[in-house]
């Protein structure tokens, strides 16, 4: 077998032995990730979603009837704080999974494709630690992407439209401060929603040395899950799909605040994390690293 297979097990190499090494590895992974032009391009594109929405609504002379267009879009003209919510609804089905697919699919396969995976493992980093660090990077990207969307939505909304107390779905009104808190809660919800997909992407990334393939496969998985989610004959399957609660953040916009779906979603994502984390571990520690 390959030389890397016969070396003393890097896997049990012990994160406790070289703790500093883990943090260094994580730091370098994050700085590489966020120095990439690709990452910046994706974040800019994410930030553009609310900006485009807000500008389009601002320039348009026709007013929307309530309930027309994407959720909350008709409220935007009266209250700029709704821009972020509308943008979130628009971005969740395709755009955010797309960016997660690119980042998560690239994690292992990207290094393998560049031929740098071998060198990463030559340092006594260990495969498990490398997996963890790669996943942490992808998870951080989930958070940064949703925060980018939220912040850019709030800023452009405040710049173009009046800002005032926000009407929740229940018809109750909350203050601007509380609505900003709820926006952050929504961002947290969406971040958690994407963690399962990120782990699936990490697993797929361990299967191949072609990063583009892993990215495409991850995105396809997210699209398939959403297609399955709308087929009524498969309703027994729906609660188990990682995408099923993606739009459930609406529950955070009800009064009184309902954290039930947040918990539900988190448990579901934890399940996906466990299953695909185990698969990624098994696949990666037994993989022949040739490049």
């Amino acid at each position: 077998m390959s030389p890397s297979e016969t070396r003393p097990p890097e896997t049990e190499g012990g994160p406790h032995v070289r703790h500093g090494g883990s943090w260094d590895l994580l730091g370098s992974e994050i700085s590489v990730l966020f120095r990439r032009r690709r990452t910046w391009a994706m974040l800019v594109a994410v930030a553009l979603i609310p900006i485009l929405l807000a500008v389009a609504v601002r320039l348009s002379s026709s007013t929307l009837d309530p309930g027309e267009g994407p959720p909350f879009l008709d409220r935007v003209t009266q209250n700029g704080l709704f821009v972020g919510f509308t943008a979130m609804v628009v971005a969740i089905p395709l755009f955010l999974p797309l960016t997660i697919g690119v980042v998560a699919g690239d994690t292992i396969a990207g290094e393998a494709g560049l031929g740098t995976l071998r060198y990463l493992l030559v340092a006594p980093a260990g495969r498990v630690r490398l997996l963890l660090v790669k996943y942490a990077g992808a998870a951080l990207f989930c958070l940064v992407a949703t925060l980018t969307l939220t912040v850019s939505g709030a800023l452009v909304g405040a710049a173009l439209f009046p800002v005032g107390p926000v009407t929740l779905l229940s018809g109750d009104t909350i203050s601007v401060t509380e609505s900003l808190l709820r926006s952050l809660l929504v961002a947290a919800y969406v971040t958690v929603s994407l963690l399962g997909l990120a782990m699936i992407g990490l697993f797929i990334s361990t299967l191949t040395d072609v990063p583009v393939g892993a990215m495409a496969a991850t995105i396809v998985v997210s699209v398939i899950a959403q297609i399955l989610d709308v087929i009524p004959q498969l309703d027994w399957l729906h609660p188990w799909l990682f995408s099923h609660y993606w739009l459930g953040f609406a529950d955070l916009l009800r009064q009184p605040l309902d954290l039930g779906s947040f918990a539900h979603n988190a448990i579901l994502q934890a399940g996906y994390l466990a299953v695909f984390g185990a698969l990624a571990y098994s696949r990666f520690v037994t993989k022949d690293i040739l490049s």
Binding site: A274, V275, A278, L279, Y281, S282, V285, T286
Partner: peptide, 8 residues
């Protein structure tokens, strides 16, 4: 090492 992939 494949055990977790089935156990989990």
């Amino acid at each position: 090492r494949w055990l977790p992939a089935f156990v989990v």
